[in-house]
C-alpha cells in the first residue's frame, strides 16, 4: 500500500500557546496512521478573533499571512472547526474586492480540513486503536457543526475508543457561550450559557467531555474548575492519541 499523502498542520494560536499538548496529540494521531506531518514554523493565527470583532483590515493581514504560509501544502489539517470555518467561509468574503487574493484564498480553503473531518471523510479512518477508561460525552461546537457540517465524524471516532462508554448529553448542539470576545465583554450572559452546558454534561453522567474546539473546551473547563466539578475536558485528539 502506498504511503498516504503528508499533512501540514495548522495549530491555532489557542492550542499553540495554551494547550500545546493537544497539538502533540494530533501529531501522535498521525503517527499512528503512519502519515508524515509537517509544521510550517512561521504560522500564527487565521485572523478569526479580529474578523469576529469586526476588524477586517487586521483580519486580512492575518489571512494573507496564512495563505502565504499554507498555499504550497497538499492538505492542511487543523484541530479546530472554528478556525477552519474562518478559512473556508470567511476568507472569500474578506477578499471580495481583491480577486487575486480571493483566488488564492479559495485554493487554500479547498484543502483545509478539520481534524475529524480529515480522518473520517478523507482518510476513511474511524478506529485509531485508542483506549480511554471513562464515560465520554461530546459537545458539538457551533462552527464545526453548522458551517463545516461535521456531526457524526467525531462520534464515530469516539465510539471506536476501547474502554470508553459514549453517552449523549441533552442539547449537545447548543452553544457553550464562548463566542470569542463575547465571553469577556458579555461575561454574565456567557456564564449563564456555560452553566447550562455544564449542567447538561452532568445530566449525561459522563466523567469526560470531549470536543473538537479548544475555545469551547477552555470555556467549559474554566467553569468546571471554578466550581470544583469532577469532570475532565479533553480535545478529541487527546482521546484518540491514547
Amino acid at each position: 500500500m502506498p504511503k498516504p499523502q503528508p499533512v501540514t498542520l495548522f495549530i491555532q494560536c489557542l492550542v499553540d500557546g495554551l494547550y500545546p499538548e493537544v497539538a502533540e496529540a494530533v501529531v501522535q494521531v498521525f503517527k499512528k496512521l503512519n502519515i508524515d506531518v509537517d509544521y510550517p514554523l512561521d504560522q500564527t493565527c487565521c485572523g478569526q478573533p479580529a474578523f469576529n470583532a469586526g476588524y477586517r483590515q487586521e483580519a486580512k493581514t492575518a489571512a494573507r499571512h496564512f495563505i502565504e504560509i499554507f498555499e504550497k501544502s497538499h492538505a492542511i489539517v487543523c484541530p479546530s472547526g472554528s478556525c477552519v470555518s474562518m478559512v473556508r467561509r470567511h476568507y472569500e468574503e474578506l477578499f471580495a474586492k481583491e480577486p487575486r487574493w480571493q483566488a488564492r484564498a479559495d485554493a487554500v480553503a479547498a484543502k483545509t480540513y478539520e481534524l475529524t473531518e480529515y480522518l473520517v471523510d478523507v482518510l476513511g479512518v474511524t478506529d485509531l486503536g485508542a483506549r480511554y477508561d471513562g464515560t465520554v460525552t461530546y459537545h458539538d461546537s457551533c462552527h464545526l457543526l453548522r458551517v463545516i457540517g461535521v456531526q457524526q465524524q467525531p462520534r464515530q471516532l469516539i465510539r471506536y475508543v476501547k474502554n470508553t462508554q459514549f453517552v449523549e448529553m441533552p442539547d449537545s448542539d447548543q452553544c457553550c457561550g464562548f463566542g470569542g470576545s463575547f465571553a469577556f465583554k458579555y461575561g454574565d450572559i456567557s456564564t449563564a450559557m456555560v452553566a447550562e452546558k455544564v449542567k447538561n454534561i452532568q445530566t449525561s453522567g459522563a466523567d469526560t467531555v470531549v470536543g473538537c474546539d479548544m475555545g469551547c473546551l477552555m470555556n467549559i473547563q474554566g467553569y468546571i474548575n471554578r466550581n470544583n466539578l469532577p469532570i475532565k475536558t479533553l480535545h478529541i485528539a487527546q482521546l484518540l492519541s491514547g
Binding site: D16, P20, Y186, G187, G222, Y223, R226
Partner: peptide
C-alpha cells in the same frame, strides 16, 4: 483565577488556562 482589567469579564465566573511554558512550536 483573575485576569486584569476588562479581561476579568471572563474570570468573574470562570478560571482560564495559563500560557504554557513552551509553545507547540518550541516543542516541535
Amino acid at each position: 483565577s483573575r485576569l486584569p482589567l476588562a479581561l476579568h469579564g471572563w474570570t468573574r465566573s470562570r478560571d482560564i488556562k495559563s500560557v504554557a511554558k513552551a509553545s507547540f512550536k518550541k516543542r516541535w
